[in-house]
Each structure stands twice: as C-alpha cells, then as structure tokens.
Design a protein around this nucleic acid. Structure first.
Lengths: 345, 345
DNA sequence: CTGAAAGCGCTTACAG
DNA sequence: CTGAAAGCGCTTACAG
C-alpha cells in the first residue's frame, strides 16, 4: 500500500495525496476528506525514507553519552545514575515536538565512528553530546560538516571554530563548588580536602577552581596535598579518599560528584571514621541515592531536567530553522543541605 | 558528494561503487581499492534513506518503555531506577551488532500512535517493549503487520495470536516471590504481608502467586487483609504500607518491588517502627539504592542485563533472518540477603 | 485546485 | 568482472 494505490482508489493523482498528507492548502476540502478517509481505511503510512529522500526533514535527533573511563565495568552507563534522568528528559522534550531520539553510548574513541556515520548518512539531523571532553575532534568534524549539535558540560566559546555554531548548555559548576566550599567554611572547617573529577573535563576544572576561590575568599589556605585527583567514578572516589585519609586529617571533604562520594564513604567506613562526626562530606549532582544514604548526603543539585529541555528545544529549533546558531547557557545549581556535614568548634 | 560523483572520479559505474560499498565479491581487487580510496578521500557516506528505499535492511530497533501510571510525576522514567540499566544494556547489545536504538517512552495510550508510526513508516524494523500490560492491542497490531517484536515481562503464550510470533523474555517472578516468602517463613515469620505491584501486569500477578504458594507450602495461612494493592510506584508503596500498618501488625512484609519499598520505609518510619526489629522487609528488583539503604535492603535481584541481551540479540537475529519466531525465556532471579530481615522466636 | 514528470540517492536483476 | 537501466516511494516545481 503506497501513495499510488491511495491515489488510484481516491481517483486523484499522487501529487494530491502528497498534498493532503503534508497538509498543504491547495486542495478542496472535499477531496481532502475523501483522501483522508481512504488513508485511514487502508492504514496507509508514508515511507519515511522516501519522504526524506524526496526532501522532507527528518525528525530524529541523536543523543550521545560519552563515557570513556578506564575503569573496567561490564556496563558503564548503567552504573551512572547521572545520565539516566537526562536521557529520559531529552526523550520527553523531543517527543513533545514529535521528534524521536536515537541514543548511543560512546565508551571508546572508535565508537565515534558510528556516531559520525549516523550524521553523515542522514539517519539523524542533529545531536546532543553529554559528558565529553572539550574540543573533541569527532564532534568538531560533525559541526564543520554543517550539522546541528548541542554539547552539555563542555567549555566552548563563540570564538572557537567550529564550535561557534553550536549550542552549549552547562551547569554552574564553578558557582556550585564555591557555594559548597563556602558552606563548609561557614560551618567552621579549616582543613577542607577536595577530590577532583576527571580533569580533562570542563566541569571538574570548574569545580576545582570554585573550591580554590572559596578557600581564598574565606581566608583558608589552599594546600595541594589536600587535593586528590579522581575521575568521577565510584572506584576512583574510593581510591582517592583512601589515599588522602591515610596521610591527612581533613575535617571536611568536598567531592566533585556523588558517585565518588559513594566510594569515599566506603573508604571512610573502612578507616573506622564517622560521617559527619569525624569528617564532613559534601558531593555534587544530587543523584537519586544521595538522599537515601545514612547520613543523607549534602550535595549540589544539578537541574539536569532543565538542561535537557534547554538543549533539546534549542536543537530542534535550530534544526527546524535550518540554521546553526551559537547559544551558551549556564544553568544555576542549588546547594541541598542534608545531614553529612557538621558544624565544628 | 554521492555515489555518482565517486563513480565518475573513480572511472567506474555507480553499480560498481555500490558493489564495493556492499562488499560484494564480483569486483577486481584493484578497482575495489581504487574506489575505496576515493570514498575515503572524499569522505563519502551512502545516504541511509536511499539505501533503505532501494532495498537494504535498516539497522535501527526501537525500545519502548511503557510507564502508564496514574501518579502525577513530572518525568516518569527518570524516577525509575529500573528501566535505566535495561536501556543501556539494550543499546550496548545493539551497538555490538552495528545496530542503533531509538527509544521512546509511552506514558499515555495515545503515545502508542507514535510507536506504531515508527514501525509502519519503516523508521525501525523491530522493537522491544518493556513494562506493558498483557495483550496490548497496539503491540498486537504491530506484530500482526509482520514486524519483529520482543516483549519483556508480559505473559504471552505461543498459542496466543498474534503473539505466537514474538520473542518474550521474563524473569522468574513467581520463583523469586516464592523464595523471598519462603525465606521469611524460615526466619520464623508467621504474619507476612504483601504489597502487590500493578495487578494488570504479569509480574505483579506472578509475585502474588509465588507469595501465596510459599505460604501454603509453609503451612502459613493466606490472609486477604495482609495483601494490599500497590502499582509499583514509590508513592503507592507508601500508601499501601500506611494503610496496612494502621490496621494490621505483620512481622514481615514482602513488597513486589524496591521502589515501593522506598515508600514503605517512609511509612514505617513515620509510624515509629524499626526495620528489621519491628518489621522485616523484603523487596524485588535490586535497584541501585537497595544496597545503600539503612539497613541495606534484602531483595530479589533481576538479571536485567541478561534479559536485555537475550531480547536484543534474538530480535536482531529475527530481523536479519527475516522471520518471526516465537521464543519464551524465563530468566532465573536471585535472592540477595542483606540486613532488612531478622530471625524471630 | 490538480496532474504529469523529474528527481532524491541508492541497489539489483539483467545483459554482456 | 562491469555497466545501463529500472525501480524503491515519496515531494515539488511546473504547467494548466
């Protein structure tokens, strides 16, 4: 059953069938109704590939979760409570505009080949990237080829070709880290350690900077032996905390994300330390488990849903208008005070 | 840049270009190499829609998460720690076979229209449905139209047209519920309540049956006032537990999933009861937070990753071989004993 | 308002 | 082993 069949049955030309399907004005109401009825009766649905080939815009966007960690988990994304709400929010926002989303996970550099192919072979017309490093060449290549792209949590400026044509949505990592650290200082802490995220990533750098700035502003000296590198995974949080606490005795710890907090908590427990009595702990993200921990974790909430909506809606808009505009959003974050930090002195 | 351009540059016909792209045998090694080089040089990628239209199979499968609850959450799936690992496992399995996955969320009945369109307009060639009710008419219609479908956690038998042509993957809900309840009985509990899942769903019915059977086999009477209906959401777990505990005093509770446990725990705490001292609690699923709860939740682990692999791989196989076969897998589950149940007497 | 025709970019018999 | 041609199912100027 194709357009010709419908045309024949309705006694019109394929052109007319096409017109009613695309809701064009130049068809008499009468023939429009007749054609519509027959379409319904025969359950006819136009072939998407044929439509695309003949010039219709495609309504599929890609969502690419970049998770290239070294740690050896069987299945990476599933360990990440972080990406999941973002994904569903993107799907939600897209579906509302009659778009669909095709998602893929990039674990290794070579997975970018699949991603590029999806753009170049026109399966998708636009894409969102989350979690990548700045200036990823594969992404640059895609933008250069003229496709609409939104990147989440990457540092990109409008002067930076080809990223001057892309939508970027970030949370205020610097501000969040600043608030978190300031909160700790206000609680009376003078020895505040920091476990960083993957320092190849913009967010990790910003959080480190926010931490340092708050210390400076609060008159607390920045000590490099209190700053330990992690890479955002739970395991790295465990190792970093272990390493740190074997040598130093901070009264508080600002950890660059909640997943690493989970690992840090394990380390803290193994060392027979108590939260918050012996050490105050503050995270970043506010993943689902944070509120269920004992004590409930104080953390910085990222409005992931907002970010997903901003990215998706802007991307679709760019796609509809067939233009590549630059837009840079910094979404505010929020300190969520729970029970993992105590006042000292 | 299209196949004709490449052909011209390489001094061959479009047919030949097509042959090398599709890796057919009948091309001299020499011309194959030449064409391949030019393809690479000009960064040519065949247009997917054109390929499909001309007869190539498409390599996109759909993943549809059916979450039609009445509860009013802004964003449903993101509340569900259950679907997320499944999703990423499907993507993983698909990508390994060079397939991509397009996912959508079905919150209302009318969302099935979008799903049907994706099949009928050939955007996808096969699809996985998770979380739906038995005999969903929209799914039946899709199968009837000849598309490959896998359903997860639905009760479907090979005698049931049109589901006799679909792949079904279930966990052993009955067995898991039986084990959980038996475990409670062995611990000495004689008054064991049950909060059911959404009884429109196969899993909820099976878990209820498993619970009853274990009671019967254990010589513990089944009392209807100890069985309260929930619908798998956290909120329903809260309400059900509250309602139950205001009237009855069970020493243990088997809850049909972990999300409802979260709600039940809130209710239990509000009533100033202690887990496991006053009441033992056992869940189902083993979602990520389960192990972080205080006390850590004893629950029945569902091998979601295995299920995702089974469904995806079978579906792709069916799609490649262009046949609709019936397959019914029941994946075993595993009781994970943690700290939320105590021995009595 | 409507139809005939060209064209989108491929693949695949068919013929050689 | 290779090419010319038909065809996949649409949309969209173009002409009327």
């Amino acid at each position: 059953m194709n357009a010709s069949d419908i045309a024949k049955i309705a006694g019109v030309s394929r052109s007319t069938v096409s017109r009613v399907i695309n809701n064009y004005g130049n068809v008499t109401e009468e023939t429009r109704q007749r054609v519509l009825e027959i379409i319904k009766e025969y359950n006819y649905v136009p072939h998407a590939s044929a439509q695309m080939l003949a010039g219709k815009k495609n309504r599929i966007i890609g969502l690419f979760i970049i998770d290239t960690k070294d740690d050896n988990y069987a299945n990476k994304m599933c360990t990440s409570s972080y990406f999941s709400p973002f994904t569903s929010a993107v799907i939600d926002a897209a579906n509302k505009q009659r778009y669909n989303v095709l998602s893929a996970i990039v674990n290794e550099q070579q997975d970018f080949n699949n991603v590029k192919e999806l753009f170049f072979n026109k399966t998708i017309s636009a894409g969102i990237f989350i979690g990548g490093k700045n200036n990823e060449p594969a992404i640059a290549e895609i933008i250069e080829s003229g496709y609409n792209v939104a990147v989440i949590e990457q540092e990109v400026s409008s002067e930076q070709e080809p990223f001057s044509k892309c939508i970027v949505v970030n949370n205020d990592s610097f501000g969040g880290a600043y608030e978190a650290t300031k909160y700790l200082i206000q609680l009376g802490h003078g020895t505040i350690a920091h476990i960083t995220g993957d320092l190849d990533q913009f967010t990790a750098i910003s959080r480190l900077e926010g931490y340092k700035k708050a210390l400076l502003d609060g008159g607390v000296p920045v000590k490099s032996n209190l700053i330990i590198k992690g890479n955002y995974t739970e395991e790295s949080g465990y190792r970093a905390a272990k390493k740190l606490l074997l040598k130093e005795t901070p009264t508080a710890m600002f950890v660059a994300n909640d997943s690493m907090c989970l690992g840090a908590i394990r380390a803290i427990e193994e060392l027979r330390l108590k939260i918050p009595e012996d050490i105050s702990l503050i995270g970043f993200d506010d993943i689902e488990v944070a509120r269920y921990l004992q004590p409930a974790l104080t953390t910085v909430r990222i409005p992931l849903l907002n970010m997903a909506f901003m990215a998706t809606n802007n991307l679709i808009k760019a796609n509809e208008e067939e233009m590549n505009f630059f837009a840079n959003y910094k979404i505010p974050v929020e300190l969520v005070v729970r029970d993992s930090c105590r006042k000292i002195r």
